[in-house]
Design a protein around this nucleic acid. Structure first.
Ligand SMILES: NC(=O)c1ccc[n+]([C@@H]2O[C@H](COP(=O)([O-])OP(=O)(O)OC[C@H]3O[C@@H](n4cnc5c(N)ncnc54)[C@H](O)[C@@H]3O)[C@@H](O)[C@H]2O)c1
Ligand SMILES: NC(=O)c1ccc[n+]([C@@H]2O[C@H](COP(=O)([O-])OP(=O)(O)OC[C@H]3O[C@@H](n4cnc5c(N)ncnc54)[C@H](O)[C@@H]3O)[C@@H](O)[C@H]2O)c1
Lengths: 230, 230
DNA sequence: CCGACCTTGTTCTCTTGTTCACAAAGTGCC
DNA sequence: GGCACTTTGTGAACAAGAGAACAAGGTCGG
């Protein structure tokens, strides 16, 4: 009788938030936490916390709450954080260099293990203890260092090619910073961080608020009457 | 008879992708595009494209497709990109400096207009043409320069305080890079970019794939038979 | 040992988002 | 001018996610 092992995507995306929150309270010496409290700290709804945690099959204690240490163990295991995931950064420019210099990843089990670039003048130079290797060496680098995750920090034009090469080299997890649509085969996972998109979304809601305010001023307080039609 | 003016959140998040795609094809001299083609380039479903675009109230031409220029105008207007949105970066460290040096924002209507830090040794120094101002000057800076968006690039510990100060100074759009849960009043909009979270999500799916493979090897090809219970 | 109290786990409902499928609408050829 | 062809716009079915509510289960004080 197998446990229900399909964790919803939305839940997966929240687990890291819970994890960080739990690490925080653990540091403060807290040993037990209720869904209510965890929800407050993680900025979500308590029912959601309980449902999310139930997917882990982890048991809280009714009347008491969850054991922080136990929860951390379960969660780390589920997220695959019991091992290291060596990362390769492809494209060592402005952003790539900043990421390479950032210590926060190694701490959390994602050591930067390799830097890759296509620019011959950069290849061979050293940054943060790593010698920059050429893109053509990717298969060798991945093999030698056991690269599990590739970070794309090249200009948009090169992103798809880099992704293809990463996948060809056996890397199935990719984080893309380039503002381009990149596709990968089904067996691989791609996530993206798109700052321009974030800013444009902020712009949308910012503008809307302004308009909203103006309208509200003009029309009185009837702005609430947005009936949810059908 | 007012047009239906509630654009779903999911749609808002896709508009920037369409926008970028359209700019690309416009550069190539394309003047008309079908939902099918746009969907392909943007990496989404064609029906979704049509529904998303229908929220703009923009008219395609049946049998032909959408006029690229017209679509760009509509979309830019809807996203509020007809004006500039001056950005202040708070926390000019490793990441903040990289963002400040990055030219890609100003190009797209988000000029970096101010740099803020709390470290007295950094205040007064210059970076990318901007003199770093002290956090205490925030209200004045926001006022003088018409700051519309605040980017938080401080350590996690300071993030909530910075957010509070930004809001107090009148900034209602915030992009947070610090790995911390930050809350803002309802009238403000906050989005976050959390790299550790992204990596951990990749870890989850990466691990899962590995397990899947192993299991598949061990058990033959019965891995498909994950019956969706109830 | 018992009962009041607390918190979990889960069911149910509602909302949001995705996708299909097709009628309506326009184009351009003949 | 009409007809075949293309593509949009949207209704309806389907899937995923959020949140309220509550029964089940366990603690702890007396
Ligand atoms: N710098 C930022 O703050 C920032 C912010 C948001 C988005 N981005 C995006 O991140 C990406 C990198 O930005 P950046 O400012 O670091 O750019 P950059 O030009 O400073 O660096 C790009 C690096 O990639 C290398 N490169 C180019 N093509 C390559 C290829 N095919 N394979 C391997 N390496 C290649 C270049 O040699 C260069 O070293 C861009 O797509 C940019 O839009 C950057
Ligand atoms: N550097 C990266 O590549 C990277 C990647 C992912 C996440 N982050 C996150 O981004 C944030 C910044 O990272 P970093 O590497 O630039 O750190 P950093 O330590 O290099 O820089 C932080 C800067 O913020 C300033 N600061 C501290 N408290 C402040 C306050 N209350 N108000 C204003 N300024 C304040 C400091 O003086 C310093 O200049 C961190 O939260 C980090 O976790 C960074």
């Amino acid at each position: 009788m197998e446990r229900q092992r399909r964790i919803p995507e939305a839940t997966v995306a929240r687990l890291p938030v819970y994890l960080r929150t739990l690490l925080d309270v653990q540091t403060d010496g807290v040993t037990t936490i209720s869904s209510e409290r965890l929800a407050e700290l993680a900025g979500v709804n308590a029912a959601k916390v309980r449902k999310d945690l139930s997917y882990l099959g982890s048991f809280g204690t009714r009347g008491v709450g969850y054991d922080v240490d136990h929860l951390l163990v379960q969660m780390s295991r589920e997220l695959g954080l019991t091992r290291d995931w060596p990362v390769a950064i492809v494209g060592v420019g402005n952003l790539g260099a900043a990421l390479a210099n950032y210590g926060g990843f190694g701490d959390r089990g994602f050591p930067v293990a390799a830097l890759i670039d296509a620019d011959p003048t950069k290849v061979g130079t050293t940054l943060g203890g790593h010698t920059i290797r050429h893109l053509d060496d990717l298969p060798a680098v991945v093999n030698e260092l056991g690269i599990a995750i590739g970070i794309i920090a090249t200009p948009a034009a090169g992103a798809q090619e880099v992704a293809d090469r990463l996948v060809a080299a056996g890397v199935t997890s990719i984080l893309n910073f380039a503002p381009a649509v990149v596709t990968v085969p089904e067996q691989a996972t791609l996530r993206k961080v798109d700052l321009a998109l974030e800013l444009q979304v902020l712009s949308f809601y910012g503008q809307r608020d302004s308009i909203g305010s103006s309208l509200r001023e003009e029309l009185g307080v009837s702005a609430e009457s947005t009936n949810s039609g059908a």
